[in-house]
Design a binder for these strands. Sequence first.
RNA 1: GGGGGUGUAGCUCAGUUGGUUAGAGCGCUGGCCUGUCACGCCAGAGGCCGCGGGUUCGAGUCCCGUCACUCCCGCCA
Length: 459
Amino acid sequence: MRSRIASSIRNYLDDNGFLDIETPILTRATPEGARDYLVPSRTHPGQFFALPQSPQLFKQLLMVSGLDRYYQIAKCFRDEDLRADRQPEFTQIDIETSFLDEDQIMDISETMIRGAFKEHLDVDLPEFPRMTHKEAIYRYGIDRPDLRISMQLVDIADLMKEVEFKVFNAPANDPASRVVVLKVDGGSELSRKQIDEYTDFVGIYGAKGLAWVKVNDIDAGIEGLQSPILKFMPDDVVASVLERAEAKSGDILFFGADKAGIVNEAIGALRVKLGEDLDMLECEWAPLWVVDFPMFEQDEKDGSLTSVHHPFTAPSCTPEELEAAPAAALSRAYDMVLNGTELGGGSIRINKPEMQQAVFRVLGIEAEEAEEKFGFLLNGLRYGCPPHGGIAFGLDRLVMMMTGSQSIRDVIAFPKTQSASCLLTDAPGTVNNKQLRELNIRLREQPKAESAESDGGSE
RNA sequence: GGGGGUGUAGCUCAGUUGGUUAGAGCGCUGGCCUGUCACGCCAGAGGCCGCGGGUUCGAGUCCCGUCACUCCCGCCA
């Protein structure tokens, strides 16, 4: 299946004038935020190659050079911990084009994915709706909503400003916080034990608790409700909440009140978990595009800004507007999401040096540092660079979803374990002192006794 | 770095309150049958119960430690 999907994607891109161009594996750090895998250089003592986290810089240089339709099924490397849908060595369908805007790139991509589903699963995916990042967070608490589940987060902070219940009124009066209600159809069947389990579940995202109201009989007013928190709220507030949540008999309402980030993650995850546990998936495939991402996100600790996508993503405003209000700036980035999984994402890139420098300034990257790290790209922009943009899809994730696999490792021929080792080859392994000497490397800590024995004779 | 789950035959798993020779299905070996083709019947081989320690008359089962795999949080788009 993986082989056939890759093949049909190649055919599609070949037929549409894309050139398959390989890019180096031994290279420099690329601008994604993950840890790099490093490879020591023998010919340059003390220096290291980095394995690419993506071919990002190379594909942009191809656009500078005038090759206006590039693709590659490329290996990418990010030295971070694994998940069911993540391993440190993975494969991207990497695409870049010149002279196309975001709508055209999304069209090409959508056609490609829809074609793959039709050809291999005989599934006709619906037209992909578009949702802004803001709306996704607001309604689903996450930037990759699973639209198979229709439940949504409903804000009620305005109703809770005056209630004498600190858990609710404090966040309700704090602009950085959020108070939401999640109505679960038929959820009043849940037992106390199950509710406790969901309370524990939201706890792993930092939520301090999970308030709830069972709606036993909507027509019986307060008497028809069952909840530990009713005593803290005036009847008219309760009535307003029920109305806004469109509650009916047999439902349960869950509440989240905390810092916005915690509420979004906790109740957003709860939404999906309830949807799965209670069998509330309304369709098999729910794709969408998420657009209008913010340019930057703020570090919670030191307040510094980092790119939401990567620092070459074009904003949808001028350099002046960007520098005046960076936190409010939106980017020309787009993510394809299927069933709550990000399948791919991309953006229109910056093609003017002034804009690129403005972004670096906002990110706190000195001109000198920018020149040292990305000088070859900046030079390209100075020589004149066509407007361009692209997208990259996680091939492993795509195949995983199309085959109904639970783990990315089920669709990778020689997968790494969760600790990023290979059981088959026993990699990574120790190397002997001769190799280390050639590379000008001395280990800070000697290997454990048994592996040290193998020094000098592991061939 | 933190929390949870799992580890029993080649594979997938069961093993009740601690109790005799640790079981099933599939696979494998041998035999029988056969118009078979995901055959059927009979017999058989195959298990340091992840590893180390402890409690106990007695541990697959309880306790402590350790290792591996896995899911999640952190991290990572």
